[in-house]
Design a protein around this nucleic acid. Structure first.
Lengths: 333, 333
DNA sequence: AAACGTTTTGCAACCGGTTGCAATCAGCGA
DNA sequence: TCGCTGATTGCAACCGGTTGCAAAACGTTT
């Protein structure tokens, strides 16, 4: 049933090598042979087996796309961009779902079994130990949406979380908010830490009282809502909140409105990510946009480059974020 | 660098076959040999190459997961379930993004190149011609979230769209709505057609005036909102709308509220899908739940069964939907 | 101890391509 | 027409496993 090299060779009356060569870029084939082969291949509907070729060349053109967070709506955009980006370069994403996985070794085995050429870890929640384990196993790896560190073990592409925090601080101050607060994801998440640090840093010279901080149980609507409800119950809320994530923000927003606070009248709110939903008119969340496309394109480029040169030194690429003005913060005064 | 069969065989002092056999289920190996081999394999950190094995067995354990709609938030759940479900069975999803693709042939070539064992087309918007093309190419294929037909060309797993329409009709009537209307996705989408047909069918014996129908430009928030704005501008809206999709519904909802209508006081609204967001308290959309997990599990089972027996006749598996009561429909009277 | 039926084992061919090497071919100048 | 050079071609080995087959090893039975 499946058409092989040999079939094409036979039909074209040439050797198998000739066929192989017409399908490999830059190999030496005469125009005449090439024509014969292409004819035969078309007749037979031949498609070279990537597997077989991978076996001899050592390149599968398979990229492990490791994901762990299927709750963040932003990831729809992420998937879309990653798959089209990889496809455009003749690569295929092999999806690996690491939700709930704790042992990097098992994942390494998985990826090695399929001899992926490289791995892209697309997750802000997966600990860097995973990317590290892939690296140690000799796989080219890029951690997308990862956390910046001064001496990264693997390539990291993402945003400067501290700078985002500063940006949020600046934005709130500019708009006249004074009693500002931070509402982050789980305290353990490193991105939350950095965002908070940046936020506090951005406020040091500002005329603000002590900054309240609180942390939701997870990066979910429910968690954001519950945390804000807790805050409201404990006393009057702050003038404005910087929320570590859009979904969280929307949860908080719902709690605020439900408790009778007007946003941005009584309380201001700024999120982070700018997922599609944030732009829906009945949400209309002011937020900080992560340049998703730029991050993904850079991740792919970096992965490719590392496949070419495995000894390339680990590198961090951080992109600037910017404010998307919507309706949960009052205008600049 | 990579450890092969031969290395393990050498270290264990046995033949390559012996090693291969210890790693194949149900092959004949003495406990003694097995022990030696396993020891050596562990020492060396050996992982059998799925590629090489695929080459001889003809099975890659790769499943093409074909997707085209990255705008429907429901697909996050879908991805999660598919990947974990496939992984649990020792299969790997090879993601194929067909957004904007019109030529099934190109996709067939892609899938054949990687010799996927089977294909799951997870999309309600992709025309059945794609699944058909895969089938004709000899690939076991299941169309998930596809449309039921009396004589399906490929396996189809999904919901009974007509029955959903009837369920929506019944639900609205039970709650005392009389001037009911349908708001669907693009008229061309076959699922929309079926849902409308069922809806009308469910209303035939009910004491309702003529049913108004309208169609949004796409399955997006913007489209739903724009269409509802158009309807409102054209005259007083109906008492209740059955919306072909949740995102669409939420768009319509935003338009209604913004125009000063109370929902469900003035106008009732019921969606379809029950994506996560529908349950958020600030949306609180009454909707019809697609049993996503059941559909996906059945799709995987069916794909597996067809891989086992390629001559299996095409089959349709439809699952019942049920109402999720929330706040956009008044309670049953 | 011989004869027998079972397991276990290794050999070698094969899966579908790739590629170094040597043989062949075509084109050109003399 | 011959010799030379560079391009094209086919052979055969290899990538890393799998598997049919026959030989070897084992355990029983008499």
């Amino acid at each position: 049933m499946p058409v092989t090299l040999k079939d094409v060779a036979q039909r074209a009356g040439v050797s198998r090598s000739a066929v192989s060569r017409t399908f490999t870029e830059g190999a030496s084939v005469s125009p005449k042979t090439r024509a014969k082969v292409e004819r035969a291949a078309a007749d037979l509907g031949y498609a070279p087996s990537a597997l077989a070729s991978a076996l001899s060349t050592g390149r599968t053109k398979l990229i492990g796309l490791v994901v762990s967070n299927f709750h963040n709506p932003l990831f729809l955009e992420v998937f879309d961009r990653f798959t089209t980006g990889l496809q455009a370069r003749g690569l295929r994403p092999l999806l690996v779902n690491l939700t709930g996985e704790t042992d990097p070794e098992a994942s390494v085995r998985m990826l090695r079994q399929y001899s992926v050429d490289g791995v892209i870890v697309a997750s802000s929640t997966l600990p860097p130990s995973f990317a590290g384990a892939f690296r140690k196993a000799g796989l080219p790896v890029v951690h997308s949406f990862g956390r910046w560190t001064a001496a990264p073990e693997t390539h990291v592409v993402g945003i400067d979380n501290r700078e985002c925090g500063r940006l949020a601080a600046r934005t709130l101050i500019e708009r006249g908010y004074r009693r500002v607060a931070f509402l982050g994801g789980p305290e353990a998440a490193t991105s939350t830490e950095d965002r908070l640090a940046g936020f506090l840093d951005g406020l040091t010279d500002a005329p603000v009282p002590g900054v309240m901080t609180s942390f939701a149980q997870g990066y979910t609507f429910e968690a954001g809502r519950a945390e804000m409800q807790r805050l409201i119950a404990a006393g009057p809320p702050a003038d404005a909140y910087f929320c570590g994530d859009d979904v969280l923000s929307i949860g908080a927003l719902s709690a605020l409105r439900e408790a009778g606070f007007s946003v941005p009248g009584d309380v201001g709110l700024i999120g982070l990510n700018d997922m599609q939903i944030a732009g829906w008119q009945n949400i209309d969340l002011t937020t900080i946009r992560q340049p998703v496309n730029a991050i993904i394109d850079a991740s792919i480029e970096l992965a490719l480059a590392t496949i070419e040169d495995p000894d390339r030194l680990p590198e961090a690429r951080l992109f600037a974020c910017h404010i998307v003005e919507r309706g949960t913060l009052r205008p600049i005064s």
